[in-house]
Amino acid sequence: MSGEATTTPAGPGEAAEPGAAGGTPMVEIRGLRKSFGPVEVLRGIDLDVAGGEVVCVIGPSGSGKSTLLRCVNLLEEPTAGRVRIAGTEVTDPECDIDAVRRRIGMVFQQFNLFPHLSAQDNVAIAPRKVLRRPKHEAARIAREHLGRVGLGDRAGAYPAQLSGGQQQRVAIARALAMGPAVMLFDEPTSALDPELVGDVLGVMRKLALDGMTMLVVTHEMSFARDVADRVVFMDDGVIVEQGPPAKLIGDPSHDRTRAFLSRVLHPTATATQDGS
């Protein structure tokens, strides 16, 4: 895969590509609004993610975190506002969204692996059908990325034969195989049994160390604290505050942030407080 000028299928740590250079943010969100019928879920979001930066989005359920993420690769059509990826405006009606999505990996809460394909074919199908790689090369890319998430030995297994944690790691490999410039994670560990969460977070941690640009919606505060360069707190469709994890999680300046964090970090304590 060396020497490819465009959409390179992915050695580790290739996040800093030409579009990201020169101060242009990898992800640039301006005035983003999204309504579902009469309900306005996003009420004017401005957010930048620089190349190589890891941004975690936290907030109560229903605050619009997932919708924000889904607007970045246009799985949801924004009602108003602009989204740019490495300088390309995806909200422009003239934009070739399929081409941009090749550069944006996405990992879903429910994994969404293709159940009729083996782990290897799950990872290989997009390089084959979208990037038009020859079959054997797509298979090699798939094995390489499965190895990267620690599943080199499960290439032939079908999703139903894998644990939730393994499935989610295959899903990460599937996204990485397209050589994305940015990765979106939509509560990647929320559907997992607690003992399987660590494996998935470990893979994401490694990815962050390799320099991948990541926008992560998560409830894992320890991951946000340890891995994120910046944490964004959302509530009720707006960004309430953002900052370095130590500051935002350790010493939030906003009441709503404080209330949310105390609920998440000390759930039992809050319950007794409410009860008294």
Binding site: N73, L75, D98, A99, R101, R102, I104, G105, M106, F108, Q110, N112, L113, F114, I125, A126, K129, V130, A171, R174, A175, M178
Partner: peptide, 16 residues
């Protein structure tokens, strides 16, 4: 529904 979303997020066209 997530199957179509996963496929589209990988850059596949609707027909593909």
């Amino acid at each position: 529904r997530g199957q179509l979303e996963a496929a589209r997020s990988l850059g596949m066209s609707y027909g593909r």
